[in-house]
Simulated scan of single mutants.
Amino acid sequence: MENLFFFMCLISLIVLTLKSKHLLLMLMSLEFLVIYIYFGLFIMMINMNYEYYFVMLFLTLSVCEGTLGLSILVSLIRSHGNDYFQSFNILW
Rank of each mutant, 00 (worst) to 15 (best):
Met1Ser: 12
Met1Trp: 05
Met1Thr: 02
Glu2Gln: 04
Glu2Met: 05
Asn3Cys: 02
Leu4Lys: 09
Leu4Pro: 04
Leu4Val: 14
Phe5Asn: 05
Phe6Met: 09
Phe7Arg: 07
Phe7Pro: 00
Cys9His: 03
Cys9Trp: 01
Cys9Val: 03
Leu10Phe: 10
Ser12Asp: 03
Ser12Ala: 13
Leu13Thr: 04
Leu13Val: 01
Ile14Lys: 03
Val15Trp: 00
Val15Ala: 04
Leu16Ile: 00
Leu16Phe: 00
Thr17Ala: 07
Thr17Leu: 08
Leu18Phe: 02
Leu18Pro: 08
Ser20His: 10
Ser20Ile: 04
Lys21Cys: 05
Lys21Ala: 04
Leu23Ile: 14
Leu24Thr: 15
Leu24Asn: 14
Leu24Ile: 07
Leu25Ser: 14
Leu25Lys: 09
Met26Gln: 12
Met26Pro: 02
Leu27Phe: 12
Leu27Val: 10
Met28Glu: 14
Met28Asn: 14
Ser29Asn: 01
Ser29Leu: 04
Ser29Met: 06
Leu30Lys: 07
Glu31Ala: 03
Glu31Leu: 04
Leu33Cys: 11
Val34Pro: 00
Val34Arg: 09
Ile35Asp: 06
Ile35Cys: 12
Tyr36Ser: 01
Tyr36Pro: 00
Ile37Gly: 01
Tyr38Trp: 11
Tyr38Cys: 03
Phe39Asn: 11
Gly40Phe: 06
Gly40Glu: 01
Leu41Gln: 06
Leu41Ala: 09
Phe42Thr: 06
Ile43Cys: 01
Met45Cys: 12
Met45Trp: 01
Met45Thr: 12
Ile46Cys: 11
Ile46Arg: 12
Asn47Tyr: 02
Asn47Ile: 06
Asn47Ala: 12
Met48Ser: 14
Met48Asp: 13
Met48Tyr: 12
Met48Gly: 10
Asn49Ser: 04
Tyr50Asp: 08
Glu51Gly: 05
Phe54Asp: 11
Phe54Ile: 15
Phe54Leu: 15
Phe54Arg: 09
Met56Asp: 07
Leu57Thr: 12
Phe58Gln: 07
Thr60Cys: 07
Leu61Asp: 08
Leu61Arg: 06
Ser62Pro: 09
Ser62Ile: 00
Ser62Ala: 15
Val63Tyr: 12
Val63Glu: 15
Cys64Trp: 12
Glu65Gly: 03
Gly66Trp: 15
Thr67Ala: 14
Thr67Ile: 15
Leu68His: 01
Leu70Thr: 13
Ser71Met: 10
Val74Asn: 09
Ser75Trp: 11
Leu76Pro: 09
Ile77Ala: 05
Ile77Leu: 02
Ile77Gln: 13
Arg78Gly: 10
Arg78Leu: 13
Arg78Cys: 03
Gly81Val: 01
Gly81Thr: 00
Asp83Gln: 06
Tyr84Thr: 02
Tyr84Asn: 15
Tyr84Trp: 09
Phe85Trp: 04
Phe85Arg: 08
Phe85Gly: 03
Gln86Trp: 06
Phe88Cys: 04
Leu91Ser: 14
Leu91Tyr: 10
Trp92Phe: 10
Trp92Ile: 15
